[in-house]
Design a binder for these strands. Structure first.
Length: 294
DNA sequence: ATCCGGTAAA
DNA sequence: TTTACCGGAT
């Protein structure tokens, strides 16, 4: 048996016993798969598990999403973070109903052309919804493959490596198993090698893993507080408000010690949110007002 | 205070 | 290739 075949066997066997029972592993419905993948793009399983069913209850299909107001979708996205995803998902739903006859396209190229769908999600949908033999590389898969595969593969591009390592059968289970292993055992720091199914054949087992450096660059912000905090507070405030809010009022609600002179700064922030399709800015009696996008 | 991550735009 | 985008966990 080849080394790769041993890796396949060890990891797939482990997965068949240890796989978590997750709702998106119980369906091949393209909408449900896509929704789960978009939610999982930047968000831990734990939190997605909580929001996924309630979002699905409110928006069970591309059609329902396409017909909804942006504000309604942004509200349903509460607690997920990266609110851009909600806006893009609704835009995507519009394209599906109006340009694709209500059906998600099946080619990677078409999937990747959709808003919010990149290389990872396109292939995840292709494999998990359509049963195609597509490699998927998220950071978990990336890490696991780099550790478990032989040194000769180290210089090749990760997507090529993933393609090469893909078993001829069971692509679905293989992809799921790599993600499961990467998130539960083969974690970035202090991997749990003693309980890993492929510890015996892993070249990296029990090696010291250097904690990977994060960007040295500081997060953009103001007075040491990242902009995303203010953006988050603004969207959250608007979620709770049925009507539009004066910029000055918004400023006082989201920034401690907000003054008139801070308004240009606030407006810059609001313009960013407007560009992202999250808020609507309008003038009323010469004052800037803002509400959730429609 | 630091960690975590897929997509889009620059 | 680099940066912005998020909020919950630790």
């Amino acid at each position: 048996m080849t080394q790769l075949a041993k890796i396949h066997k060890g990891i797939l066997r482990w997965y068949s016993k240890e796989a978590r029972d997750l709702p998106w592993r119980r369906t091949h419905n393209p909408f449900r798969i896509l929704l789960s993948e978009v939610m999982l793009q930047q968000t831990q399983v734990q939190r997605v598990l909580q929001k996924y069913p309630e979002f699905l209850k409110k928006f069970p299909s591309f059609d329902s999403l396409a017909r909804a107001r942006a504000s309604s979708v942004i509200r349903a996205w509460r607690g997920m973070g990266y609110n851009n995803r909600a806006v893009r998902l609704r835009k995507l739903a519009g394209e599906i109903t109006h340009k694709y006859g209500g059906k998600l396209p099946r080619t990677i190229r078409e999937l990747e052309s959709l808003p919010g769908i990149g290389p990872y999600t396109a292939r995840a949908v292709s494999c998990f919804a359509f049963g195609q033999r597509a490699p998927v590389v998220d950071t978990n898969v990336h890490r696991v493959l780099r550790r478990i595969l032989p040194k000769e593969t180290q210089r090749r591009r990760i997507w090529d490596v993933a393609e090469w390592a893909l078993p001829r059968r069971n692509a679905y289970s293989w992809n799921q198993s790599l993600m499961e292993l990467g998130s539960r055992i083969c974690v970035a720091r202090n991997p749990k090698c003693p309980v890993c199914p492929v510890e015996k054949i892993c070249p990296s087992a029990f090696k010291k893993h250097i904690a990977f450096r994060r960007n040295g660059a500081a997060e953009p912000g103001r007075n040491g507080i990242p902009n995303r905090i203010y953006r988050g507070r603004i969207v959250e405030t608007l979620r709770d408000s049925r009507r539009s809010v004066k910029a000055s009022v918004l400023g006082r609600r989201v920034v401690s010690g907000f003054r008139e002179k801070d308004e240009p700064w606030l407006v810059r922030l609001l313009k960013g949110l407007e560009r992202d399709g999250l808020v609507r800015i309008h003038n009323h009696r010469k004052k800037t007002e803002v509400s959730l996008a429609r």
